[in-house]
Amino acid sequence: MKKRNFVLGLLMLGFLAAASMTIYSCYPYNSTNPAEYDVVVTLHDALSNYNGSYKKYVMRDSVAHVTDGSAGTTITRSYDTLIRNKVRDNLASFGYTRVYDTLSADVVITLAITNSTSYYVDNYYPDDYWGWGYGGGYYYPWSSAYSVTTGSVVTTMTDKKKMQPGTTKKAIVWMGILNGVVDGTTSTMYQRISAGIDKCFSQSLYLKAQ
């Protein structure tokens, strides 16, 4: 009886310990779909400063391209028109009127794309193991190198009245940033950029002109 209880107890202990260790190792985050790494960040002024006070905007047709200068990080112009049109359409749906005379505008909209490549080296040090009959030992560590190119589409809204010519004082009242991994086909990039810009606005309803 005592021996049976001992074996039962030992089995229970082993099961609980093994289950805990196994489950602890499970971090389920290994998606290979670039769209799942897209993040939308909107930065805003105090919400009480909006209240529909911005109604007219002026926007340049050009989209600024900013890279980190490393080889192979030039940015295609393929997405410029899409970005311009999506921002224009979202502003229109918020009740904004586009004007072409800066003097009559409340805000200035500027558009930019950035990208940057980061290189990583990961070193893996596996746990040592316990052998049966042959004694324990260690696995050799190994390394892997990889690079990730991330890009951002940045929409900036600047309050024209707060601008002070001749100074560097910032008058930015809103920024919408779509950040993600630069990967995938042109059509999926179109979808991601389109959805990302829409998201920038849909989570910024305080910008509405009415």
């Binding site: 805990s20 489950i23 602890y24 971090y27 389920p28 985050y29 998606s31 799942e36 790494y37 897209d38 993040v39 939308v40 960040v41 909107t42 930065l43 805003h44 002024d45 105090a46 998201k199 989570q203 910024s204």
Partner: peptide
């Protein structure tokens, strides 16, 4: 003792002057 809480979420995170959204894994 030990417990791990985990959730995959797409909820927006609101910070004092920013909002952040995207697929998240929270632990």
């Amino acid at each position: 003792s030990w417990n791990v809480f985990y959730k995959e979420s797409s909820d927006m995170i609101s910070l004092p002057n920013a909002d952040v959204s995207g697929k998240q894994n929270r632990y």
